[in-house]
Design a protein around this nucleic acid. Structure first.
Lengths: 345, 345
DNA sequence: GATTAGCACTCACCGCATTGGAGTGCTAAC
DNA sequence: GTTAGCACTCCAATGCGGTGAGTGCTAATC
């Protein structure tokens, strides 16, 4: 257990190091406002903190830097939220006051603003489609026989489309019948359940309508594909990583940038927690080894009380935790309100 | 004008430098197979080439490197295409042999493979929608009165959707009438013409159907927005830039990465040429100042004989021009064939 | 007249020693 | 328990000579 004095010293070291990026020495700390101890005393305390694993020393004659354990203790016990600076708050407010017709815009803009405000990398995951309810199904045949586009619209206004192939001799009438049937049977059903059991039981009915069982199955199979799009990730400010002194070295950033570049994998950077509140993963706490020197802070936003998607910030372990946590709290909250309001009445 | 011997020497310098990344000295060159001259002679020629601006010298006692003018001369007059290596060809063939249901996949995969093969950054621009013909229009009202999703499907299977707002008292019947009217009037029309004159003349007709003129205008205005989506850019291999020795310095890459990150601006990297063949822009020939030390090689792909979109490679001026040009020629050609074949009968 | 051998010169780069300074650990005094 | 003092450590910056690749120039050679 840490003594109150050790806690003050650890907190001061974390905050000083986050600000300056330089290892913190005992002399620097003794000048700190809330600490009126001589450098020697502080040295003793620092040696103890290092023994306990809260601090690291880059080399014998350097100051101390927080270890990952140190950051963890800071986040759990010492961090004080001072409220978001007015200018930041203003920028956030204006972001959510804009009229954004497209959901896509909202996510894109959010990731841009988040990365600008924090100077770290921001990741915004679009809402998971499979919880939404189907509002409309449409099939548009293209010029080529047997080829068409299937479109799914959910009650949130989310549109998914997919190129599908039909048996070549499917007639225009068949398509109309199919669309009517699907709309009748699927309206209000969640996307998730479309994939599973619905297909089975619908196949029989559909076979009656079309008069061909195999075709009915094939068509439904194609359609069910529409319902499982990959989660879309909006990544902003990847270039910001380079500005961080700990990533000035090209060899260290390369794996990180490669990871973020594949937007399909970028989603895995955010942990899959669905609870409320902000989640902080420091260094090795992340599942992905590439992130061993990074911290990922993430939060969940909801639609109508249901967790819908995640937003997060990726930066070095030397991160301004308090500020990032507060900003994410604000943004997750604002997105929850905006989306819930917009998508009901 | 360059003498034949000067041309041989310049060509050798370019190819040697592209391969090694080190300034080329006279001794190295004299060992070159096709050059049987003493270092001294070569030195004299190199001095002349430098005077004419084809070569640069990093410092007095270093070898020579090609200037941008030198690269330009090489590309225009000296470059010999030796044919793509078998292994590369195999990879390209297998890319286009895959079944790719979504156009999106095609562009994404192409940009990935291009960047992997070249180890540079690849940019693929999706086809310009406005040349395509409208196949189907759909409007799906959402739960909230006056809010709906408008969907446009083109004959290539391209789907555009947009959240739109209607007058709140628009009835379900009105929407059905509107959709029927639009499909009747717009089928086969190019997206481009929808924006311009169509709107004007349709407004009158629509007003008769709905019985309200202002609303008709408002609705058409919203719809015309759907028809002008930004060109979508698929950027792959941005991290590859870091692997290039000329961009090991973080300060030099940062502006480049920032540019590529904003995918809306990434499109501007490729010049807007619509002719056939491959375009090479070296250093300052690029419109964007950030690219002063980069070369952009680009090519156009077509659908049914009409230029549809562009693909390109971004790398340092020290680039393997012959190889990149050949690969782009191949890919543009393959995309043209694939898209034309797939989108007709 | 073109080519080449020879030579002095330049300059980046490497390794090495030197120095300064920030910071520590330890001990003894307060 | 706290602090002053001191020897010690180690990084980072600086300076310096040696090395080698490469050049430009001149004079000899073909």
């Amino acid at each position: 257990m840490l003594t109150p004095r050790q806690r003050v010293i650890l907190g001061a070291i974390v905050e000083d190091y986050v600000r300056s990026g330089e290892p913190v020495g005992s002399r620097t700390l003794s000048k700190h406002i809330h600490i009126s101890l001589s450098p020697a005393t502080i040295r003793n305390e620092m040696a103890d903190l290092e023994d306990m694993g809260y601090l690291d020393q880059p080399h014998t004659s350097a100051g101390r830097i927080p270890s990952q354990k140190g950051y963890r203790f800071y986040v759990d016990n010492l961090m004080t939220k001072r409220g978001i600076e007015p200018s930041t708050l203003a920028q956030l407010r204006s972001l959510f006051r804009q009229r954004m017709d497209e959901l896509e815009d909202l996510f894109q803009q959010t990731s841009r603003v988040l990365s600008e405000l924090t100077q770290y990398t921001a990741i915004v995951l679009g809402p998971k489609v499979y919880q939404e309810r189907i509002r409309h199904v449409q099939i548009v045949p293209l010029g080529v026989p047997g080829r068409a586009v299937a479109i799914l619209v959910t009650d949130t206004g989310h549109v998914e489309d997919r190129y599908v192939q039909f048996p070549e001799d499917t007639s225009a009438d068949d398509v109309v019948r199919l669309v009517n049937f699907l709309n009748h049977r699927l309206a209000g059903v969640t996307v998730a359940s479309l994939k599973s059991r619905m297909v089975q039981e619908m196949a029989d009915e559909l076979a009656r309508i079309l008069g061909r069982y195999e075709d009915a199955l094939a068509i439904l199979d194609e359609l069910s594909q529409v319902a499982s799009p990959p989660d879309k990730a909006y990544v902003g400010g990847t270039a910001n990583i380079l500005a961080q002194p700990e990533f000035r070295d090209v060899d260290k950033v390369l794996p990180l940038l490669s990871l973020l570049e594949r937007t399909d994998e970028a989603g895995y950077v955010l942990p899959d927690v669905q609870g409320p509140g902000v989640e902080v993963r420091i260094g090795h706490e992340n599942a992905i080894p590439t992130l061993e020197n990074c911290t990922v802070v993430s939060a969940t936003y909801s639609i109508h009380g249901l967790p819908a998607g995640r937003i997060g910030i990726l930066g070095p372990t030397r991160m301004n935790y308090a500020r990032v946590v507060q900003i994410l709290e604000y943004v997750a909250d604002a997105m929850t309100r905006l989306l819930s309001e917009r998508l009901s009445g």
